[in-house]
Design a protein around this nucleic acid. Sequence first.
RNA 1: GCCGGUGUGGCGGAAUGGCAGACGCACAGGACUUAAAAUCCUGGGACUUGCAAAAGUCGUGCGGGUUCGAGUCCCGCCACCGGCACCA
Length: 971
Amino acid sequence: MPSGRKLYPFYLIEPKWQKFWDEQQTFRAFNPGEFIPPEHPFGQRHRLGGKCPSADELPPKFYILDMFPYPSGAGLHVGHPEGYTATDILARYYRAKGFHVLHPMGWDAFGLPAEQYAVKTGQHPRIATERNIATFRRQIKSLGFSYDWSREVDTTDPQYFKWTQWIFLKLYNSWFNPETNRAEPIETLKYPKELDPEPAELAKLSPQARAELEKRRRAYRDSKRLAYVAEAPVWWCEALGTVLANEEVVDGKSEVGGHPVVRRPMRQWMLRITAYADRLLEDLDKIEWSESLKQMQRNWIGRSEGAEVVFRVANSEDTITVFTTRPDTLFGATYMVLAPEHPLIDKWLREGGVIPAEWPASTPQLWTGGEPTPSAAIAAYRAAVASKSDLERTDLAKEKTGVFTGAYAINPVNGQQIPIWIADYVLISYGTGAIMAVPAHDTRDLEFASKFGLPIVQVVQPPDPNTDWRGYVEDGISVNSTGPEISITGLPTQEAKRRITQWLESKGLGRRAVNYKLRDWLFSRQRYWGEPFPIVWRRDPDGELYHESLPESALPVTLPALDNYKPTSDGQPPLARAKEWVHLPDGSVRETNTMPQWAGSCWYYLRYIDPRNDTAFVAPEAERYWMGSKYAELLVSRKQTGTHAALERGQHESPKPGVDLYVGGTEHAVLHLLYARFWHKVLYDLGYVSTPEPFYRLVNQGLILGEDGQKMSKSRGNVINPDDILKEYGADAFRMYEMFMGPLEDTKPWNTKGLEGVYRFLGRVWRLFVDENSETEFEQAETVTPPEEKIRLLELVKLHPAIKLTEPNRGQLRALHACIKKVTEDIENLRFNTAISALMVFVNEALSWETRPAAVLRDFVVLLNPFAPHLAEELWAKLHTGLLKPGAPPPSLTYEPWPQFDPTYLAEETLEIPVQVNGKLRDVITVPADIDNAGLEAAARTSEKVKPFIAGKQIKRVIVVPKKLVNIVVG
RNA sequence: GCCGGUGUGGCGGAAUGGCAGACGCACAGGACUUAAAAUCCUGGGACUUGCAAAAGUCGUGCGGGUUCGAGUCCCGCCACCGGCACCA
């Protein structure tokens, strides 16, 4: 559609109402105890103006949250407004329904792009960050979303990250008590006996011994904290100059930028998320997230149950512990594999005795890797593995590699000696870094054993005798599983597992065990643009470094100014350049790592609740009010819509706590959502929040593709810029089109022609309400009025003469109430596309009415408001000043009660009933609405169109679905 | 390979086991106009028969099943999308 003349003056209407909402603070939410100005429309609706209502006096809350954006330099993408529009519709709907809606927005503004720009230009990243935030804020505001801007947060604001650091201190000063299964203050930590002498004994110790004890106690304490330091192999990215979390490395490259990464041991801060693995898993059952999302989290946590089994090593006191999910296949273990990095290998190479100097007699050439001795083979293999990039290691997974170590282990169930190998298909980071290999019943082991000619022994019989037992990995019946002390032959898999585990346990050779794929969270980054740690390092009298937290009074720890944001030449983080900042007067030295971007987004939904509080990260009363959802079941109630009887009667079901609805993209399915849940649980355990889960209901919006059906990208040139759309069609059309495209959660292609259809619809709405002649006058006046005065001209546009204060007729009421019903149900079920379709159906019909009753149009405007709020406000104002209440200012549309659906208006006088013969449609008959089944059947049988199909045939059965359908079954 | 999801006109998509294709786009014809744009009206799944009005048959990825009746429920395939991927 060419630009130029617009179908309606959205370019005046939209800024007009955005300014109005800003000035009126229409969407401001009030915390318990907060003063509500007498003139505020929320206060007026709920008769709370001029008061300071408590949580109990306030209406039920509804917390609707968007995933806050990273304000990139590229500005808003069409994907952002999709989720934001969905939540805005709900926010406006629930306000109309009488809820107290919290709907905030903010900025996840720490991050790499701003820092990289700073490295390049030497300009402080704050400057670019603030510029980008300003752009995002302008763009988001131009879409007319009903955010409470007084609650805007910015993760890079010291007043915000003060509390991010504060939460870190809570993590640092807590430990996970496995007995209570929750985090507790570090003071409750119980020390092992040798570190916890009786006071009498303690008194006897020399000062030196006491200092030594205190040092050991500190080491123990530090090893138990939820935030701890570990020398761990981490992913180092040279190009980015930082380490990355496992989750930030994809296919052996950095998720950001796709740079190569290498494994390197470094001293790093870790968060003990693994302690929460079980609770993170179990509590998924308490929340309403999509099944696929829950499944992704479950996979990520990767819980697996099995047993640890201890194998003795031949000619040694050493033992190898393996983790297996199939202890029932122990009799089939014909070799063992250690990860190449396994520490036992180092020990054996150092000490000798286990790994022989020469290959054992009759060692196949294939097992030796072509090396003359076992130690040479091990060294060569390790070198080969270390030089492989991670990409190669996964890509070449098809071909298994490994070498024999020359050592043997002893299978505890039958005393057999089995060779010990090293191979990189066993990962040092999972389980114990060692496996027992059962080639008959494990795909990987079978592949390996086949390649190297290792024995394959069947120990499970598949239920179907025709199934090949080789490579059979499912349950079956144990066979060949009898040893001198234990037999499980003949037992089904589940029973066999139990029995063998019991036996192992009784012998001290193993125990039940659970393993997780989830690793502890690598929490430090060698970057500038992130939260500094509230941590300092000191040296003890022996010169050893130890860490200590800063007191809360030292918060926020702010970032020092630098003139160069690069890491130092000796590989230290950029903060190490700030010598004065790093060295404190008392001789201690600041931590120079910063926190990862996830830190700020882990808890922002809590800060929105009380964003300006400078004595607490959130006040308890406010937290309990906004997070303690008593009303979420109303959103969840899928069927009983239109009636909010439970709410009206003040009856509420059991609390479904947390943010009522959280909308965002799937890209955060694991990382952000898992990290945030983890922090929330820690805060819950420590008594700072009142709910075990942060986000009660979560919906992922689908991706918007380019017009060519491809993912939008600059290189494809198919990117749609929201600013262009807004200029051409207006915010209401843009928002409404994004909702009309299809179901919120689906991936769907953009189509500007489709947008034009929605825009034309809004033009029809405009013409339904306004007088054409007055519009011509308005347009003429526009040509001679300076731009800044044009908004006033909207008053020249008068109501359509067909709009009258008359009683609506039956048909008009039916059209209205059909619309109310459909729109209400669809909004509650997040089916915005069909809700919009219902609005279109109504308008198409209403345009044909000779008189347009004001009362009907008035209700329609309330229904339109969540979708096209600017146009709705303008029409609402015209309706009131022109007809409903001339002279008086119109009541607030935002807080106008949602129309009640009345089913009596939907009743028809006649019904159209399909008549089938043998399930095939033959006629549609018109019958009185009050017809009974017998009458309906009779009418169907006498239909002229039906007669030929039943004539001369035996009628076997007639199915009558009351007031719905007749099906005549003939023989 | 494993897990989750989705398959409906030319396109985006609608359909508590009960008239498949609402609503919109695109398209075609018409009205208004000197003309165009905008707007309004009409039409349309495919095939067959018929000048037409109309009628019939087939039709929701494929093959089976349950049912008076299946896009919808069950079983078995196929394709595509997303996630995980040597996790013992």
